[in-house]
Design a protein around this nucleic acid. Structure first.
Length: 596
RNA sequence: GGUCCUGUGGAGCAGUUGGAGUGCUCGCCGCCCUGUCAAGGCGGAGGUCGCGGGUUCAAGUCCCGUCAGGACCGCCA
């Protein structure tokens, strides 16, 4: 090493030691006769003092982010000049030699913890952005998270296995990223949406305990918590029950929050059934930092004559409500704003009743449409107090109305500041349905898998899920933190007969199944063990631990919303020669027969 | 595919009722300065107000389109 010490490590005990440091000029304070330079390296900052001689002359020429090597003597700062804000604030290094290792051009982006630039400029100069303490800490935190997970898994004798990133297109789920294959023009690899099928093959292979910090790819639109390439901590285990996977996951998540957030998670983490979560919170990933639970009013509001409610009830649907504490104090404009909010989500509107703060009397347009009898008991029915507002949703499809109320619940919490930003709440969502009605808009008929088609039905449903597909439950489980789904998994089907029945219900013929998953079904002929696993959303988990609002903050080189990387300029056009070689335009000679 | 927010010297912002490219903080260049720590003082340079069109005597400001960044809905087994 060309240095003897880390700048951020120096303390009062080092006084008198001659050190050589190497790093960057974080800031220069030039007083003419004396110059202070904050020297930053990966370990932190230390103040270097230039007082006389050639080094002091040269120090006048230093500029921010010059890369320098300094030799000097550590000494206590003069009394009264200590800086308690800095870990190294008790001492300073008096320079005896200065070497400029490289100069820096004027910065396009200030390397300064106090200023936050726009995303495009930060990403274009990400290497400068990462010199700042916040972004640098986020990457170090992520590294620590990897270490913590690996330690737990290694202790339990898991095997880390890498699976292909050039693989076969999967027929369902998200859109695949495709890669042309030069050696077979007209044929394409897909980048994996997850290592799902490979990890099941590894169970057939007898590894019993597999994990991988796996890069996954999905060609869908982005969000603050979604990038086209993202990372899962992917885990699969043989001879386990749902409880075993949950226990392991709690061990990992518990370790992460203990070490990286200083928070001890209460275990076991509470479990909610999927139906309970929808009924109480209108979401399969409820934020439990606050109450504001939903109330079903389908029975209570029967026979009001109010068209919106009557139609939903007559269709065998759902009417429910959620209470906004203090919501009666909203202006007419704010209440109208809720209608726009609901319409933006595809709903017709959001009916509401406000309860007079003094008298508790129900008011508002909907109140005029409800019979006095129904109005009188409304506050008690929904648990509202005078001064509150009650929002209603009604739909022929239960989940639709519940999810609108669930979204309203989150919005109420946001507008009234109900969510404690320092709180951590976790829960498992278990007993998810196996199937949901296929979306006709996507050309579907019959049933679609809620999770994926290899998810095992629960013991109670394994022999009769065909009797009521919409009610059948699966051994599927999601772990949720503060309203974010941070992981999900399932016990898989390992019996050929059960798998065939699931495919039958999904309308997948044996020929189609063979075409799509033939290699997996083939493998399952040879004594597949019962198995199950989970995938943890690693970017989201690191984002939460870092206290950030976007997974971009915990990815070294993220892309913008348009899939563009301002740093490298990717994606780019390709040359005619590349295009010809890649075989992008090749036409398949003959349609391959199914099963080949 | 849809809704919304943002775009003003290198960075972050302000810019009123449409009235001169006006202003603030930082950075940059020059000079001064021996205890600062987001140092300070004096002086200076730096602008296609994202781009295109329209309305107007006059547009950073109003209208339409477009591009870029962001948030959300759809989508994401």
């Amino acid at each position: 090493m060309i240095r003897t010490h880390d700048a951020g490590s120096l303390r009062a005990a080092d006084a008198g030691v001659t050190v050589t440091l190497a790093g960057w000029v974080a800031r220069r304070r030039d007083h003419g006769g004396v110059t202070f330079v904050d020297l930053r390296d990966a370990s932190g900052l230390v103040q270097v003092v230039f007082r006389e001689g050639a080094p002091a002359q040269a120090a006048h020429q230093l500029r921010n982010e010059y890369c320098v090597r300094v030799t000097g003597t550590v000494g206590p700062r003069p009394p009264g000049n200590e800086n308690p804000e800095l870990p190294t604030g008790a001492i300073e290094v008096t320079a005896t030699a200065l070497e400029v290792l490289s100069e820096s051009a004027p910065l396009p982006l200030p390397v300064d913890d106090h200023i936050d630039a726009g995303d495009d400029i930060r990403l274009r100069y990400r290497y400068l952005d990462l010199r700042r303490s916040g972004p640098a800490a986020a990457l170090r935190l992520r590294s620590a998270a990897n270490r913590i997970a690996r330690t737990v898994l290694d202790r339990r004798r898991f095997v880390e296995v890498e699976t292909p990133t050039l693989t076969r297109s999967t027929p369902e789920g998200a859109r695949d990223f495709l890669v042309p294959v030069r050696l077979q023009p007209g044929s394409w690899y897909a980048l994996p949406q997850s290592p799902q099928l490979f990890k099941q093959l590894l169970m057939v292979a007898g590894l019993e305990r597999y994990y991988q910090i796996a890069r996954c790819y999905r060609d869908e639109d982005f969000r603050a918590d979604r990038q086209p390439e993202f990372t899962q901590l992917d885990i699969e285990m043989s001879f386990v029950t749902q409880d075993d996977v949950i226990e392991l996951t709690e061990e990992i998540v518990g370790g992460l929050w203990r070490e990286l957030a200083g928070h001890e998670i209460q275990r076991p983490v509470p479990r909610l059934t999927w139906h309970e979560a929808l009924a109480r919170y209108g979401s399969d990933k409820p934020d439990l930092r606050y109450g504001v639970e939903l109330t079903e009013l389908t029975e209570y509001l029967r026979g009001t004559g109010f068209r919106v409610f009557e139609t939903a009830i007559a269709a065998g649907g759902y009417v429910g409500a959620v209470v906004m504490p203090g919501g009666a104090a909203q202006t007419r404009k704010e209440l109208d704003g809720w209608q726009d909010w609901a319409k933006a989500r595809g709903a017709r509107g959001l009916a509401y009743v406000v309860l007079d703060a003094d008298t508790g009397e129900p008011r508002g347009p909907v109140a005029k449409n409800l019979p006095a009898g129904h109005l009188a008991g409304l506050a008690d029915a929904v648990g509202a107090k005078p001064g509150d507002a009650v929002f209603f949703a009604a739909a022929g499809v239960r989940r639709e109305a519940q999810e609108l109320l669930g979204a309203a619940r989150v919005e109420i919490a946001r507008r009234t500041g109900l969510a404690d930003p320092d709180a951590w709440t976790f829960c498992w969502i278990v007993d998810a349905p196996m199937f949901e009605p296929a979306d006709p808009a996507l050309g579907g008929t019959g049933w679609s898998p809620v999770h994926h088609p290899f998810t095992a039905p629960t013991a109670g449903w394994i022999d009769r899920f065909e009797e009521a597909p919409g009610e059948a439950l699966a051994y599927a489980y999601d772990i949720v933190c503060n309203g974010n789904e941070i992981g999900g998994g399932s016990i898989r089907i390992h019996r050929a007969d059960v798998q065939r029945r699931v495919f039958d219900l999904l309308g997948i013929t044996p020929a189609e199944a063979n075409d799509k998953f033939g290699f997996l079904l083939e493998a399952f002929k040879y004594g597949p063990p019962p198995h199950g696993g989970i995938a943890l959303g690693w970017d989201r988990i690191c984002m939460l631990l870092a206290g950030e609002d976007s997974i971009r903050e915990v990815i070294a080189f993220p892309k913008t919303r348009g899939g563009y990387d301002p740093l490298t300029g990717a994606p780019t056009r390709i040359t005619a020669q590349q295009r010809a070689e890649a075989g992008v335009d090749a036409k398949p000679k003959q349609e391959a027969a199914p099963g080949t």
